[in-house]
Design a binder for these strands. Structure first.
Lengths: 411, 411
DNA sequence: AAAACTTTGTAAATTTTTTTACAAAGTTTT
DNA sequence: AAAACTTTGTAAAAAAATTTACAAAGTTTT
């Protein structure tokens, strides 16, 4: 597997001759399309690449000899001989995907078709800013690799998703594990593999783009409403990172003049009025004022036991008080989203995260605010949907991210 | 000039053979780089295109025969024979650029190097939503073409910049001239040429990207503070339009809860507190309250005669009252910009438009607000500068836009 | 079910492109 | 100022890619 054309770091093109470079680039393009389309026929590749059928076949034969491409049976024809299909050799090219979340971490191994080839390992570890946490995750990853029985040489890259201000290009997470040389270099040494790191909100946006409700779309905002509010952006069909990879800090834009103190140190951030934390605080406050709710029964009248999980459950069970809370939080969020709609003119906004589980109770007030605050022409352009990707969106996205970085590499 | 390779609309590639298509694409890439770099040597083109020197020379000779490329003398060498340089044949490829503004319209003809080949014609026409306005502009454009004495066949396209909700792709301005079939089709019939239309804020952003302070940068916001607040965005090195070309409606995001009524029909838009209009209203209000200012002398104590031009002049002349007004308006604007910095993580923000003429009096309060409301890591990433492009940024941008649409065309 | 039409696959001929080799035109070093 | 080195430009040889022609394998029509 060494000298695998997909391994950009170990693949040196600097002393390639003209023809070699040309072939290399042609193969890269072919592999990219084989990745996207899963299986393609010779004539299809010929059309995509503007190469003649004999050239395509000779390149494919080389890739088959290199064990990167395999035959995938025959496809359908609209009146003529059925074509042979070719695709990537899934078993030979594997990725480790790690999704580090606040209260647990998910680890699994994907093949090149983004199909998991092992169980999804859940590690119960609280995310705190200590390198020991990362060491534990590496250890658990290695255990998974051992258990899986895969050929280690086939594992060609690792993708990591975590919260924080992540500079993906330079491999630094400024919020967690901000060690000298950057966390990516640290992990590359530990795993002896190229590593790709990215912020969790952007990873989820990429997951939606590749496998979720944003598939095939160009301009989509993916908003994750949990303890914070994450924003991942697909603009012009590509993930948007900003200059240093800090774009999408929707959670900390100022919404309330001289408002509550936020975890970030500033006052009146959106997060203080429209997140799981804000929802819980609002619930406690109103319950203390004597409002009636299913929550009273659920907690045995212990107001301090109220948490976002319980509020979500109460709303789903039809509790008017809980639904009212979502209305209030949704309206605050909706006002913020109205600004996003004006700035980005997106075709779709996907809402994910814990709070989105109540579905329409959150979406309806958002729509109300869009109607109130948006220019109608721009408002009419956008659809709001609740993410259909489940808990695993993070690791799916992390794997997609590794693939992206391999197939979109200029090199 | 018919069948000019650059004329995407009249150039039909549908029945090209494999080689013809290949050559066509290779030529397009070469022309694109010749446009960007102005002049290139054979070895340089060879490196860029991954084609061998003999191939490059043979393609260049074909383009020279087609009168699209010309020799441009010899370049320098770092120790060896001096290369022949090649470039686009500027005289043969001309564009009409039209910048429609609220109180006047600018028209000129550019060559392919974005150098004007005629005077810049100023037409005093107030922009109102009547097609007669556009007819007048077309008439004036034709006069300019006649007077210039250029070969009409060399004029291959027209670029139009105007305010409004512009869907560039479909050729519609929903705010002005929203006639059946779209204003682009209307103009294409009138001029008998392919037309490109775009919103003025985005045109200016493109102007900054190609010829201004955003040159070579990837993520830049261009904010124009005039009667409204225009926002043009360069994201990932490309102009961002949004789904239907409505992105950048910064002017109408809600800033003040139940604030003043805006021209758009909504309340509390940014425009109502941070624009030339807001500045003037604020000045009048405070003067009525008896505040002292140079403006009293300038207007002979006629408060109703106060306008933004006078306030700008007073500030430049050192009037503390006027400077104070810019501080207030700048802070409102700065708070809005702080949100943009969080969302986009840009490397530069360029402020243009009338109000930017006071330079630091507007920029300083913006910086203050960024320091107050931004996460420091994101704040440190961004520089705010005042545009150096003069009044002509609109037509320069319009010409650049036409070039962009030609050289970035997939076709 | 045979005939007519489509599409894919492949070998040979043709064309295009690259490579090689070397001459031409400079620059730098000694 | 000559020698040594670099880079560009070009013709001929070699290699690669496309085109052409046709066989193979289907589908649709009659």
């Amino acid at each position: 597997m060494k000298d695998n054309i997909l391994l950009k770091k170990s693949f040196d093109t600097s002393n390639f001759s003209g023809v070699e470079m040309k072939k290399f680039l042609q193969k890269k393009i072919m592999l990219k399309h084989l990745y996207i389309e899963k299986a393609l026929s010779t004539p299809e590749i010929s059309k995509i690449t503007n190469l003649s059928a004999p050239t395509v076949i000779s390149l494919l034969n080389e890739l088959i000899k290199e064990q990167i491409v395999i035959e995938k049976g025959t496809g359908n024809s609209s009146g003529g001989r059925k074509p042979n299909l070719f695709g990537l050799n899934a078993e030979q090219i594997l990725f480790l995907a790690i999704d580090i979340r606040n209260y647990y971490t998910l680890i699994t191994i994907f093949d090149i078709n983004n199909t998991p080839v092992t169980e999804i390992r859940k590690v119960d570890v609280r995310l705190v800013n200590k390198i020991e946490v990362m060491d534990l995750i590496v250890e658990e990853s290695n255990k998974l690799i051992e258990l899986s029985g895969i050929n280690k040489k086939c594992l060609i890259s690792v993708g990591v998703s975590f919260p924080g201000l992540v500079d993906s290009e330079n491999g630094i997470n400024y919020t967690y594990f901000d060690i000298k040389g950057g966390i990516r270099a640290y992990l590359e040494a530990k795993f002896d593999r190229p590593i790709e790191i990215e912020n969790d909100a952007r990873i989820r946006a990429l997951g939606e783009l590749k496998f979720g409700l944003a598939k095939g779309l160009q301009n989509v905002l993916v908003i994750d409403v949990d303890w914070g509010i994450g924003l991942g952006m697909i603009l012009n069909g590509k993930l948007y990172r900003g200059n240093s990879g800090f774009a999408g800090e929707f959670s900390h834009i100022n919404i309330v003049e001289e408002g509550l103190l936020c975890a970030c140190g500033k006052r009146g951030c959106l997060e203080t009025v429209a997140s799981a934390g804000a929802l819980t605080e609002l619930a406690k406050e109103e319950l203390r004022q004597g409002k009636l709710s299913l929550l009273n029964e659920m907690t045995g009248n212990d107001i301090n036991a109220v948490n976002s999980e319980l509020i979500i459950q109460a709303a789903i069970d039809g509790d008017q008080f809980a639904i009212g809370l979502f209305d209030k939080v949704g309206k605050k969020l909706g006002k913020g989203i109205a600004s996003l709609v004006h700035l980005y003119n997106p075709e779709k906004i996907i809402i994910g995260g814990k709070l989105s589980r109540v579905n329409d109770y959150l979406i309806a007030p958002i729509y109300q605010m869009l109607n109130k605050f948006c220019i109608s022409k721009v408002r009419e352009d956008v659809v709001i949907e609740v993410s259909t990707l489940n808990e695993n969106s993070g690791i799916i996205g992390a794997a997609a991210f590794v693939m992206e970085s391999i197939f979109n590499a200029e090199n």
